[in-house]
């Protein structure tokens, strides 16, 4: 099996993978970073969103081996020194979740959104930008409020 190395949440990691090993499998099964979820496994739901070289991607639809030498950030990499990232804090504050399964992907998508579009996000933009993240509990209302507040405080 080929060995790959990459940077995950600022740390150099390596491991053996098969050609078919998905990035999300490498993160969860090899590195134990189970904050990244697998919802649909068909690149629809966005529970598996992580950042690869600064861009939000669906880690269920990327080969780990194709991400060799990349810089990957997962939900575990957002909080610093025991303090939640402003976007995580906003989801907590605005109760932007119910069961929480989609939350890691929502937050990674939201942080990417702010990086691309800035801190001032209106509701229409947020809803449109969340097209690739599905929540089956909340009806999105509080998620949108959380993203808006989180963006402003980033």
């Amino acid at each position: 099996m080929p060995a790959i190395s990459m940077k995950v949440n600022g740390q150099a990691v390596c491991g053996e993978v098969e050609g078919r090993t998905l990035l999300v499998e490498f993160l969860r099964d090899k590195l134990g970073l189970t904050g990244t979820h697998v919802g649909c496994d068909t690149s629809q739901c966005g529970a598996c969103v992580v950042h690869v070289d600064g861009k939000a991607v669906k880690s269920c639809t990327a080969l780990a081996i194709a991400c060799a030498d990349a810089d990957v950030v997962t939900i575990e990499g957002l909080a610093k020194n025991g303090k939640l990232h402003p976007m995580q804090e906003a989801f907590r504050e605005h109760h932007g979740l119910q069961c929480g399964f989609c939350t890691p992907g929502m937050i990674m998508a939201a942080v990417d959104m702010v990086k691309r579009l800035g801190k001032k996000l209106d509701e229409d933009t947020i809803r449109h930008e969340l097209e690739g993240n599905i929540c089956r509990c909340t009806g999105y209302h509080n998620i949108v409020a959380a993203v808006k507040a989180g963006a402003a405080s980033m």
Binding site: S43, G46, V49, K55, A56, V57, K58, T61, A62, A109, D112, M113, R116, E129, E131, G132, N133
Partner: peptide, 9 residues
């Protein structure tokens, strides 16, 4: 096309 994450890839 698709959604933001799909468009990144």
């Amino acid at each position: 096309i698709g959604d933001p994450h799909v468009r990144h890839r």
